[in-house]
């Protein structure tokens, strides 16, 4: 891929120097426009809540600057740090469980050919196009009956919801692995479980990274499912942000700005530290449905 990329950039339609400089300038302005909303929130997070809605574009100055008041107040009001811990646990545990179990399922479904495995595969694929609203009400009642109203229950539900896409992606990859390697392992006396963990799973790593990234992005930011499952006072980050909006639509704008900054900050740090994998994973996950 990288070779192809270079090939593409050196041989093909490169633009001239002047055009290149103009394009760079245009894109630089566009980049700033892209960043502007986030900068605006950051700037307002240091202003008194009374001066945010009315004049969001004014820089904080003597009369409006309040230091870290909004942060202190917001954290106290929302319990953002425990929410951060919960979001982190739910995301990491769900992604780990999804990768482990759906890759095993995908291998089984691809290798064992029967009417049943075939049907099962299509049921998983089918689940990908069903919108959440279709199962929202019945699922939350079922979860309630089974005592799944906790972080741990939520991990199980994410495995169920993530299964469709993850099985689909893993199956696509397993099909491309030559059967001979696994057969050799089995002839040498490996059980299917050993074969899977020693031989197959290591080969699935690129797809596992893609599945991990797509699911982490979804689960970390998901609002609706946790809001239906978890008690209001033990929410995730998106729930905490949404709950800041009080009854009748009144919002403490100061706390809101500060909490938005704290919600966005870890995402940006994470993104910048492994953007290579994220961008590659997203591109690789975009296989035809």
């Amino acid at each position: 891929m990288s070779r192809k990329g270079r090939n593409f950039e050196t041989q093909q339609m490169e633009v001239g120097k002047t055009t290149g400089a103009i394009l760079t300038a245009v894109l630089a302005v566009l980049s700033l426009t892209f960043l502007f909303p986030i900068i605006l929130v950051l700037m307002n997070s240091f202003k008194s809540k009374l001066f945010i809605s009315d004049a969001p574009f004014q820089l904080p100055k003597a009369g409006t600057y309040v230091g870290l008041t909004n942060y202190v107040e917001g954290i106290r009001k929302t319990g953002l740090f425990p929410a951060f811990g919960r979001s982190l646990f739910i995301t990491v545990a769900s992604v780990a469980v999804i990768i482990l179990f759906t890759s095993m399922t995908a291998w089984f479904l691809t290798r064992v050919k029967s009417v049943f495995t075939n049907i099962l595969y299509y049921v998983f694929v089918f689940a990908m196009i069903v919108p959440f609203q279709m199962v929202m009400f019945t699922m939350s009642k079922t979860a309630n009956d089974l005592y799944l109203n906790s972080m741990y229950g939520l991990v199980l539900l994410y495995l169920g919801f993530g299964a469709g896409q993850a099985v689909f992606l893993f199956c696509g990859f397993v099909k491309a692995i030559p059967l001979e390697i696994e057969e050799a392992a089995m002839i040498d006396g490996c059980s299917p479980v050993q074969t899977y963990f020693h031989v197959v799973f290591p080969m699935l790593r690129p797809t596992a990274v893609t599945v991990a990234i797509l699911n982490a992005m979804w689960i970390w930011n998901d609002y609706l499912l946790p809001s239906l499952i978890l008690p209001q006072e033990k929410g995730t980050i998106p729930m905490v942000i949404q709950n800041l909006k009080g009854g009748y639509g009144s919002i403490d704008m100061g706390a809101m700005m500060a909490m938005l900054v704290l919600a966005i900050f870890p995402i940006i740090v994470f993104y910048l530290s492994c953007q290579k994998y994220i961008i590659k994973g997203v591109a690789a996950g975009a296989v035809k449905g």
């Binding site: 759906t102 099962l120 689940a127 079922t142 495995l159 919801f161 469709g164």
Partner: peptide
Amino acid sequence: IFVLPTLAAFTVAFLYPF
């Protein structure tokens, strides 16, 4: 071992509610 955990979660979260 290979299919049941995924299938159980899938049934609870999706198939049965659907």
